[in-house]
């Protein structure tokens, strides 16, 4: 296509749709300059080695090869998946239950909707430290209660399984309010007649949930799961201030590894390569979820 024609077409579009383009311009400029461009740079940096106080050199895929050859990095990815599955498995059912309860016609249930949002309002670094002090072997109330119940001392940040449980419970606690809010938003949009007609058809509580509630909140559930997935995958500060990735590398999720490489060791190349892997993983999950919801819609 000759360029003059395309530019003329561009000008035509610009004059015809000037207002919406102008309205979108600030957001687009900010996002292109400060988000899209750095996203490109991360790919660039991942192919280079940038020593402190020196010029960077092109190293091809060396950073990726190094990472994939490491037991540690494979463990980082496994830890991230374990963390993600744990958080979703714990927070989504809890959020669903909470959403149904706060949207019910009970008097006063609405107050709980506000109360339940508290974990979302607290800074992750603060809740991490609170959780850490709660499971302290000598002064934590949770360890004290468990010791009283079982006669055993639970070393939450020492035993690998308990350390994973600690970061999962902490993150699920932080994540469930936002999920609840989204799901509750979907629930309020369902008209009560649908339940009434389901009841007329003889549907029990489970059938009502299965055939009315769940399908009609599917979009909200999708947004909730997607958001929490991405937030959990990239979480660094929550896990780092709780366990620093320990014991060993058991809770060193990819976000924590990235934080350590980029901000503690200044290994920009490796840090960027991990960033690229995280971005690709996020895109993979988005596609996966879109497929699932797409399949659900065509049913």
């Amino acid at each position: 296509m000759p360029s003059s024609r395309s530019s003329r077409k561009g000008l035509y579009l610009l004059s015809r749709y000037r207002l919406p383009y102008l309205l979108l311009l600030p957001a687009v400029v900010v996002l292109v300059v400060f988000l899209a461009w750095p996203l490109g740079s991360i790919f660039y940096f991942s192919l280079r080695e940038t020593p402190l106080g020196g010029a960077s050199i092109f190293v091809g895929l060396d950073n990726f090869a190094l990472l994939l050859s490491e037991n540690r990095f494979l463990n980082n990815l496994a830890a991230s998946l374990r963390y993600l599955v744990g958080v979703l498995a714990l927070s989504v059912p809890l959020a669903y239950l909470a959403a149904i309860l706060v949207s019910s016609r009970l008097r006063g249930a609405g107050i709980f909707r506000t109360v339940f949002m508290l974990p979302w309002i607290i800074a992750p670094v603060v809740s991490s430290i609170l959780f850490r002090t709660m499971v302290d072997p000598y002064s934590g109330p949770i360890t004290a209660a468990l010791e009283w119940l079982t006669g055993e001392k639970f070393l939450f940040l020492v035993k690998p399984d308990l350390a994973v449980l600690s970061i999962v419970v902490h993150s699920a606690w932080r994540s469930f309010p936002f999920e609840m809010l989204l799901i509750a938003a979907g629930l309020t949009a369902i008209s009560p007649e649908l339940y009434d007609s389901a009841k007329v058809d003889g549907a029990g509580a489970w059938s009502q949930f299965r055939y009315v509630t769940l399908p009609l909140t599917r979009n909200q559930l999708f947004v909730a799961v997607l958001l929490i997935t991405i937030w959990t995958l990239q979480d660094a500060e929550g896990v780092y201030s709780l366990t620093q990735g320990g014991p060993g590398y058991v809770t060193e999720v990819a976000g924590v590894r990235l934080f350590k490489e980029a901000f503690i060791y200044f290994n920009i190349g490796i840090g960027s390569a991990i960033g690229v892997v995280l971005i690709l993983l996020s895109i993979l999950f988005m596609i996966l979820y879109l497929r699932v919801i797409g399949a659900g819609e065509s049913q």
Partner: peptide, 20 residues
């Protein structure tokens, strides 16, 4: 893209952003 972009891990973008 507006829906997708913010979902990409912010922590990955911080390093080049420091340079900018």
């Amino acid at each position: 893209l507006l829906l997708v972009l913010p979902l990409l891990p912010a922590i990955a973008v911080l390093v080049p952003l420091i340079v900018y």
